[in-house]
Simulated assay, not measured.
Amino acid sequence: MSCALVTGASRGLGRAIAVQLAKDHGLHILVNFASNQQAAEETLAEIQSVGGSGELLQFNVQTKTEVDEALNGWKEKNEDKTISVLVNNAGITRDGLFMWMPEKDWDDVVDVSAKGLFNVTQNAIQQMLRKRSGRIVNIASVSGLKGVPGQVNYSAAKGAIIAASRSLAQEVAKRKITVNVVAPGFITSDMTKDLNEEELKQMIPMNRFGKAEEVAHLVSFLVSDKAAYITGEVININGGIYS
């Protein structure tokens, strides 16, 4: 059985992506979460409500021992299943001006996005390499392409994801594994709930924030057979805010 691992899938973009992949591709969804089990169970319930199947998988993406223990343990118990799709979605923000930024706020943001990508992808890609097929979609941000004041740490983390994805795409292309990046702009979610939407949407040509489902549809396309010749790409979904 083919499975999709979606990191940070308990809410927001991760949840929308997990549900869409179950709906469109019949993939068994591994719903990764760090601490909020109740929210992760809500994601699983939504997956089941659209006729999909899935299970919860708890680990902190930034801690390699946790990632390997969880994924290796899962593989041992599920020899009939393989992770054929990986969506590295987990990410956090700790916004603040660089000159006053605590070192921990830099480390935490970079560790979850960039180190998390390393930890999870290095484990999950082993099966893909053996099977000579796979889809990896990494979620970046407009911040990784166009600098955003107050987000030097987040921009650094997402910029790293973009550069790493382009390199990895070239390494694994011959094995029919694609690696692409989706870079959302302002999307209505928990992460943007404290932003001034009225003010910010004036800088968006489409004059609105995006929906999590719109990002999920793009991810769903990239993991489909229709996208087999697309790799190493960064696709913006931001209503027209181009960097």
Rank of each mutant, 00 (worst) to 15 (best):
D24L: 09
H25V: 03
H25M: 13
G26F: 08
L27M: 10
H28A: 04
N32C: 07
F33L: 15
F33D: 02
A34R: 11
A39E: 03
A39W: 00
A40M: 11
E41C: 14
E41G: 12
E46R: 07
Q48A: 14
S49C: 13
G51T: 02
S53G: 07
G54M: 15
L56D: 04
L57P: 07
Q58W: 08
Q58I: 08
Q58R: 09
N60Y: 12
V61C: 09
V61P: 05
Q62T: 06
Q62V: 03
K64M: 09
T65L: 12
T65H: 14
D68V: 03
E69P: 04
E69Y: 09
L71V: 11
G73R: 05
W74A: 00
N78V: 01
I83C: 01
I83Y: 01
I83F: 00
V85H: 10
L86N: 03
L86H: 03
V87G: 04
V87K: 05
V87M: 05
N88C: 13
N88S: 15
A90T: 13
A90Y: 13
G96I: 11
L97D: 04
L97E: 05
L97Y: 08
E103M: 14
K104N: 13
D105H: 08
W106G: 03
D107L: 12
D107R: 03
D108L: 07
D111W: 04
D111E: 10
S113L: 14
S113A: 13
S113Q: 15
A114K: 02
K115C: 01
G116N: 02
G116I: 06
N119A: 01
N119L: 06
Q122H: 15
Q126P: 01
Q126S: 01
Q127A: 15
Q127P: 15
L129V: 07
R130K: 11
K131T: 01
S133R: 10
G134C: 08
G134A: 03
G134L: 02
I136P: 08
I136T: 06
N138I: 02
S141E: 09
S141K: 02
V142P: 05
V142Y: 08
S143V: 12
K146E: 09
G147Y: 06
P149H: 06
G150A: 11
G150L: 15
G150N: 10
N153H: 14
S155E: 01
A156V: 11
A160T: 09
I161D: 01
